[in-house]
């Protein structure tokens, strides 16, 4: 168990006393949680700063946090909580790759939504949960005119899409054919191709490991921390098939 040490100097003691006197409130004891929590909310923000009306999870915050968690010997595991509408491909895949290659146990929980680029982040963890009411949308990468400094061709879009599909397949139990079929399915989304998976659907197709909530996710992480041999690190790397990238 780790101890989160806070400087217990005079100032802190004084503010504690003030809190008790003014608010009748006692400061909570320093927690002894062995794991940290990474919330991925709103838009995943990468190379481009999004207008302030968007709620974002910024790449420049998340990456150093992940490095610190990996390096800090007192932190034994990581819980990733997703409620995201997607976002930057490069940032999303970078975060997903960092989670996948961490040496410490990781568990993800999809609450609300884990759409678009949230999917690779969710499957990157050693074990993934989705709650019954959460949804995940699988849809094609679209031509939008927002590519920076890269010739925007159909070929390029296709390669971006392949990166995402491949990462998901390598880190979950879903077969490539099924994932691709879901991505281009018609009749599920209004005016668009793709598939919406609600809770159980994501487990049934092999994308997510189990239905569960906060308690389940924390219990799983605790058991991984206590029994590291239970963790199956994602090591599955299929050889590139001929013609995979055209």
């Amino acid at each position: 168990m780790i101890q989160v040490n806070m400087p217990q100097n005079e100032q802190t003691t004084q503010s504690n006393l003030q809190n008790i006197r003014q608010l009748g409130q006692m400061n909570l004891p320093d927690g002894a949680l062995p794991f940290h929590v990474l919330p991925i909310i709103g838009q995943v923000e990468g190379h481009m700063v999004l207008p302030p009306r968007n709620k974002t999870t910024k790449y420049e915050h998340v990456i150093p946090q992940l490095v610190a968690i990996e390096q800090n010997p007192r932190i034994k595991g990581l819980l990733i909580i997703l409620n995201t509408v997607g976002g930057d491909i490069e940032a999303g895949l970078a975060i997903a790759e960092m989670i996948r290659t961490m040496s410490k146990p990781t568990v993800s929980l999809v609450l609300g939504g884990g759409h678009s680029i949230g999917t690779p982040i969710a499957v990157a963890a050693d074990y993934s949960y989705i709650c019954e009411t959460a949804t995940m949308t699988i849809h094609p990468v679209r031509l939008t005119g927002m590519v920076i400094g890269v010739p925007q061709t159909y070929d390029y879009l296709d390669k971006m899409q392949e990166r995402i599909l491949r990462f998901i397949v390598e880190n979950s139990r879903i077969p490539m054919e099924q994932l691709r079929e879901m991505m281009f399915r018609t009749g599920e989304l209004v005016r668009d191709v793709g598939t919406v998976l609600i809770g159980e659907d994501a487990v049934r197709c092999g994308l997510i490991d189990q239905i569960g909530g906060l308690g389940d996710a924390i219990e799983r992480l605790q058991s991984f921390i206590m029994n590291p041999h239970l963790v199956r690190k994602n090591t599955f790397r299929p050889l590139p098939q001929p013609g995979f990238y055209n």
Partner: peptide
């Protein structure tokens, strides 16, 4: 390059201003 379910028009619309954050 974005991969999101939110339409680009919604992401990049500058209609309402929100208090600046530091």
């Amino acid at each position: 390059m974005l991969y999101t379910i939110v339409p680009y028009d919604d992401i990049f619309s500058e209609t309402d201003s929100i208090a600046n954050r530091q």
